[in-house]
Amino acid sequence: MTLSAVTLTLGPKGPTLVSAPRMPVEDMVIGRPVAEVAELLPRLFNLCRMAQTVAAKLALGLPATEDPMPEIIRDHVLKLCITLPHAFGLPALAVPEPQLLPHRHPAAMLLGPGGLPDDLDDLRGPLVPLFQHLARTFPPGAATTTPLPAPLHPLVGGAFENSAAGRQADHPLLRRIESSHGRGPLWRLAGLLADLDAALAGRLGGAELVDGIATVPAARGTYALRLTQSGGLVTGLIRRTPTDHILAPGGALRQSLARLPDGRRDLAQQVVALHDPCVPVTVREVEDA
């Protein structure tokens, strides 16, 4: 079963999560022909379709020639230019066009004229106001998470750091922000920018198939999928998405919401936007008795 939507309630004992009826993905694919499932599975979801296409084809033993990198770059650019500025009440940025950097990928302009620096004070370019706004809004230690480990196995569930920032946790910029502010909103924003840098430079790595499990880099982290088959028909499905790890008990989103600045539960939706689960999330507060 796959999450379709969740409600997070902010109460005195921390955030609690209630899931809407789950999407019966297994029922939709088990018993269907392999080629049909490879086409159907990505269409069941609105996001990261290219990553899911590659994973489905790899898991089913079909040729997978698609490249998920353009999708990752596009999603990062839209989030940095439109989604996150809007979430924090700032003007949207113009999405970079090819004519702005005719000899490089246009998204590189978001890194600044000198590329992504190792120190936040050296950051230049159109995203500086967003970084400054987050630094003012979230003091050091606010809305942070503990240093969660990366998933120990592609299909394991639970609280793990499976995110763009987690992929880039060793970047000097993220290490310095973690030291000064913790793994909070500023760290996640820097991680998104560092992940864009890595995608543009071809450093994210590619899709893999190991022991029948396909793993594919996606905008929110790493997507994992196992599909079993017999006689040309799909017989089983197990999938694990970054959102499964984000929303797990003790996971990054619940930790961050539990550590909002005092009296600033109004920032909950902004924190959700930074973590960016791939399902709709409603945040509400427990009413006072």
Rank of each mutant, 00 (worst) to 15 (best):
M1A: 14
T2H: 15
T2Y: 13
T7V: 11
L8S: 00
L8G: 00
T9G: 00
K13M: 12
A20D: 13
M23R: 15
G31E: 10
G31H: 07
P33M: 06
A35Q: 07
V37C: 09
P42V: 05
F45R: 05
R49M: 05
R49C: 01
M50L: 08
Q52D: 02
L58Q: 07
L62H: 12
P63E: 11
T65K: 13
D67W: 03
P68H: 04
P68A: 06
E71K: 09
I73T: 12
I73R: 12
R74P: 00
L78M: 15
C81V: 10
P85G: 03
H86K: 15
A92D: 13
A92E: 15
V95A: 09
E97H: 06
Q99E: 14
L100E: 15
R104E: 15
L110A: 06
L111D: 01
P113Q: 14
G114S: 15
L116V: 05
L120E: 09
L120K: 10
D122M: 10
L127S: 07
H133I: 09
R136W: 07
T137S: 11
P140Y: 10
A143I: 07
T144F: 02
T146G: 03
T146N: 02
P149A: 04
P149W: 02
A150F: 07
L155G: 02
E161A: 08
N162T: 03
S163M: 07
S163D: 08
G166V: 06
G166Q: 09
G166F: 08
H171V: 06
L173N: 10
R175I: 13
R176L: 13
E178V: 10
G182H: 13
R183W: 11
R183G: 07
G184V: 12
P185C: 12
L189N: 04
G191A: 11
G191D: 10
A194K: 08
A198P: 02
G202H: 12
R203Q: 15
L204P: 05
G206D: 03
A207V: 05
V210K: 12
G212F: 06
A214M: 06
P217T: 01
A219V: 06
A224K: 05
L227R: 02
T228V: 07
S230M: 15
G231I: 12
L233D: 12
T235L: 07
G236P: 00
I238L: 14
R239L: 09
R239S: 11
R240N: 08
P242M: 08
G251H: 07
A252L: 15
L253Y: 00
L257V: 04
R259Q: 13
R259M: 12
R259T: 04
D262P: 04
G263L: 13
R265T: 11
D266V: 09
V272K: 00
C278M: 11
V281A: 02
D288L: 14
D288R: 13
